[in-house]
């Protein structure tokens, strides 16, 4: 299987604070990777580097053939960042800037809206949608350009518990359908175990744990196997503090 992207000794420094201290990471195409860690461990910085929003101070980031170019990697944020003055379909079509326009763009946008279960909301303003629906529009916008890599910066963090589980199922279904590489930054260990093939634990700018989650999908919240993985990661996350 070919590689989606590789981090080789990647470093990032803000002022006197070294946020990333030599990250090495190789992710094959189509893998779902979750990155977890405490606040300030550098996980969002890593994601911004991956999305090309920031440049490393040392080391190299290489992307596979498919993920090169502007539309090869998309990022989705904790806030939906929709344009309040554009209808829902137009907001999704923003994801096709420089790829398609006019009727063709609207048709593709409508397809992806249907994909996220909002087929009949295309002509609404974002302000009338709920938080979960807005985030689904943002997901459609991120995917409509068919990126090879989707970077997700805690996109479900602001949602209530039930909407969150629905969104996790939606995300998993679309990921399996489209086959893109997903990199999810989250502080929710359960979410990481439910969704990811592989969980990376960042600690003080290092990869502290690289764990493959070998469980059949779809996984259920609260099943014993999921709980066991959760426990293992939590022990590792909190263990050092307890000692």
């Amino acid at each position: 299987m070919s590689t989606a992207f590789t981090f080789q000794g990647v470093q990032r420094v803000f002022g006197s604070k070294q946020v990333l201290r030599g990250i090495n990471l190789e992710v094959p195409e189509g893998q779902f990777v979750a990155i977890i860690g405490k606040s300030g461990c550098g996980k969002s910085t890593l994601l911004r580097l991956l999305a090309g929003l920031d440049q490393p101070d040392g080391g190299r980031i290489t992307r596979g053939e498919a993920a090169r170019g502007a539309a090869g990697t998309r990022i989705m944020f904790q806030e939906p960042r929709l344009l309040p003055w554009a209808r829902v379909t137009e907001n999704v079509a923003v994801g096709l800037t420089g790829i398609a326009q006019g009727a063709a763009a609207n048709a593709r946008a409508a397809d992806y809206l249907a994909e996220v279960g909002l087929a009949d909301r295309g002509s609404e303003w974002p302000s009338v949608l709920s938080g979960g629906q807005r985030q689904r529009v943002a997901l459609a916008r991120a995917l409509v350009g068919q990126p090879a890599i989707l970077a997700l910066d805690e996109p479900l963090g602001a949602l209530d518990a039930l909407t969150r589980i629905e969104m996790q199922q939606l995300l998993e279904r679309i990921w399996r359908e489209k086959g893109f590489t997903a990199v999810l930054v989250t502080h929710d260990v359960a979410e990481a175990v439910i969704l990811a093939d592989r969980v990376i634990l960042l600690e003080e700018g290092h990869v502290a744990l690289d764990l493959t989650i070998d469980l059949p999908r779809p996984r259920r919240h609260g099943s014993p196997e999921v709980a066991a993985y959760e426990q293992e990661i939590l022990d590792r996350l909190l263990g050092r503090n307890a000692a």
Partner: peptide, 21 residues
């Protein structure tokens, strides 16, 4: 500024950013 950042991420040209955002 989050919206203008979004516009840039999605590759909007300066004039498009002005008219759309």
């Amino acid at each position: 500024p989050q919206l203008t950042e979004m516009g840039r991420i999605y590759g909007m040209s300066p004039s498009r950013l002005f008219w759309r955002v």
